[in-house]
Simulated scan of single mutants.
Amino acid sequence: MAFANNTSTQNSKRLSQNVAFWIFRLLSFSVVAILVIILGFIIVRGISVISWEFLTQMPREGMTAGGIYPAIIGTLCLVVGSMLFAFPIGILSGIYINEYAKDSWFKRFVKMMTNNLAGIPSIVFGLFGMALFVNQFGFGDSILAGSLTLGLLALPVVIRTTEESLKAIDNSFRIGSLALGATKWQTTSRVVLPMAFPNIITGLILSIGRVSGETAPILFTVAAYFLPKLPNSIFDQVMALPYHLYVISTSGTNIEASRAMAYGTAFVLIMIVLLVNLLANWLRRYFSRKVKMN
């Protein structure tokens, strides 16, 4: 009797486990299916617009003809500029929080503020960037003001990713390094940071993915409605793919041409993000192999 009850209980647990696994599989497949549908929709409608002229020419006729070359260059400038600001500061901040800051009210306060900063809507960052960088610092509507604003937007992601990556490194490596006579900084820079760097690259990927598609911050700080030329300095305005996509989707005079340009622009923006993510993933694998070899 007891044996039968145990068998029945095991079968019930096995059934519950299988049901849970199938639910997880269905949810995973649903997420993938939604992503494929979205990408397929953009690709099918946008790939017919893609041509060498579309990628290398200046826009014409109220952005219903010509290409999106200035918007591509402007987007790349903003992404690179924001990462040059956010990545060093974010990594150093994450190192300080995890490796140097003692467990106190100040550390908890900084972590809470970082989490809150990550949840602030992007349009608030845009208003702040306009007030501080455009008006107060006198940068005007420029690549510099837009990059700093987008850098602030990406900063919390980099900090949290760096902190979690460092936290995942087993403490025995730190103890062993210190026992061999290394200083705290030598332990952090030569032992802990190289091991955590492949995961820190994830923060860069997430940050690039976020800032490359933002419209509100650049609307207040850098984006130009129609500017068929390339920037000459960091104090120039630029066109950008997200804002360009918004403008031609809502303000076009030629509806059909504008809609085709919008899908083509969306396709290019997705491809840029995809290529950057592939590059970042390659860097992560490269550094992972170096860590394993060492």
Rank of each mutant, 00 (worst) to 15 (best):
T9E: 12
L15E: 09
Q17T: 11
Q17M: 14
V19S: 02
F21K: 14
I23M: 03
S28L: 15
S30K: 00
I37W: 12
F41V: 09
V44N: 09
R45T: 08
I47H: 09
V49R: 07
I50N: 00
I50W: 00
W52M: 09
Q57M: 13
M63N: 06
G66N: 06
G66D: 01
I73Y: 00
I73E: 00
V79T: 15
V80F: 13
M83R: 06
M83S: 11
L84S: 04
F87Y: 15
G90N: 07
G90T: 06
I91N: 12
G94Q: 09
I95R: 05
Y96R: 07
Y96K: 05
Y96M: 11
I97M: 15
A101K: 11
M112W: 04
T114D: 08
N115L: 08
L117H: 04
G119S: 12
I120R: 08
P121D: 08
P121E: 10
I123G: 01
I123Q: 02
L127A: 07
L127K: 06
L127P: 03
V134Q: 13
V134C: 05
V134R: 09
Q136W: 10
F137I: 04
F137L: 13
F137P: 05
G138W: 12
I143Y: 14
L144M: 13
T149E: 10
L150K: 12
A154C: 09
A154D: 04
P156K: 03
I159V: 09
T161Y: 01
E164D: 08
K167D: 12
L178D: 01
A179S: 15
G181E: 04
T183G: 14
W185P: 03
W185G: 05
W185H: 11
Q186D: 07
T188M: 05
S189V: 15
V192W: 04
A196R: 07
F197K: 06
P198L: 09
I200P: 07
I205P: 01
L206H: 15
L206Y: 15
S207N: 14
I208C: 05
I208K: 10
G209S: 06
E214R: 04
E214T: 05
E214Y: 14
I218P: 01
I218G: 01
L219I: 12
F226R: 10
F226Y: 14
L227P: 03
P228Y: 00
L230M: 13
L230N: 00
N232E: 15
I234G: 15
Q237V: 08
L241P: 03
L241Q: 05
P242W: 10
L245D: 12
V247L: 08
S251Y: 13
G252Q: 06
I255Y: 09
R259T: 13
A262G: 01
A262E: 03
G264L: 01
M271T: 08
V273I: 15
N281V: 11
R289W: 02
K290V: 13
M293S: 11
N294R: 14
